[in-house]
């Protein structure tokens, strides 16, 4: 047990991800590495094309690194599994043929984590934490975008996974809903202290949600800088300053970009 503290919850070690589009091989990320500890809120931040989503899918087990390794609690990630639950950007991640409650239960029963009865209880509990108890028996197509994402988060929280993987979950929402969802997510974290890896291209969102920010540069995706919580806290009063710094890091190789 003594060694547990030395093994990080998640270790991404020199990961290179390549995929083929027709005849061309595209390198999404090159030798990317970082660690995530219990209770961290790590944000992968970068412009489109930096491979952050691809990297998240690799952590999810949907892609295999062509170089390097991803380990969870010291065990190599070989495929998808319910110990790493993903929340996607797309609203259609909910199963339209199941009600809100059944959707939240689905993860628990499909993964054989809980029996049906226990799953129903845990699902209702989880739905309450995202304030959707009135909609437990509604079908997803009757919900707004923000509510659908809350259901997806509830489904994910109910699983109590080792790590929650979020792939720009609020990107398709309108600005007001996005803001509310970000606050709610932080509230949920305060209550549950889960571990989260969050992908976004919004500097503002990264600064708001992250306890650590892994800034990535594009073509191919590399880790440009890792900002720790202390640095972020220092800059808490002066967001403009640190976001300027992130912009400089992000675009130092691409002077033609203008924000």
């Amino acid at each position: 047990m003594a060694s547990v503290s030395e093994v990080p919850l998640l270790k991404v070690n020199g990961v290179t991800l390549r995929y083929r589009i027709e005849e061309k091989t595209v390198t999404a990320t090159e030798r990317v590495g970082f660690r995530i500890e219990q209770g961290d809120r790590v944000v992968l931040l970068g412009p489109s094309g930096c491979g952050k989503s691809t990297l998240l899918k690799a952590v999810g087990g949907f892609l295999h690194p062509s170089e390097g390794s991803i380990t969870l609690n010291g065990r190599r990630v070989e495929g998808p599994g319910p110990d790493r639950v993903m929340v996607f950007q797309e609203f259609d991640q909910l199963l339209p043929w199941k009600t809100v409650k059944e959707n939240v239960m689905f993860g628990l029963t499909a993964s054989r984590t809980l029996s049906k009865r226990e799953a129903a209880e845990r699902a209702l509990e989880s739905i309450r934490t995202v304030h959707l108890e009135k909609f437990a028996d509604a079908y997803p197509h009757t919900l707004s975008g923000g509510m659908k994402q809350r259901v997806a988060i509830a489904r994910c929280l109910a699983m109590k996974p080792d790590i929650i993987l979020m792939d720009e979950p609020f990107a398709a929402l309108d600005a007001l809903s996005r803001r509310r969802m970000q606050d709610e997510l932080l509230e949920l974290w305060n209550e549950n202290r889960f571990t989260m890896l969050f992908v976004t291209h919004s500097i503002e969102e990264a600064l708001l949600l992250g306890s650590r920010i892994v800034v990535m540069s594009p073509h191919p995706g590399r880790v440009a800088e890792i900002l720790e919580a202390e640095q972020l806290n220092e800059a808490a009063g002066s967001h403009p300053e640190i976001s300027e710094r992130i912009k400089r890091v992000l675009f130092r190789d691409a002077p033609e970009y203008v924000i």
Partner: peptide
């Protein structure tokens, strides 16, 4: 069947006939 739903299924460990 869209990719997201497929990934959701596999995320929760569903394979084969299930």
């Amino acid at each position: 069947v869209n990719t997201t739903i497929r990934m959701v299924g596999r995320n929760y460990g569903l394979t084969g006939i299930r």
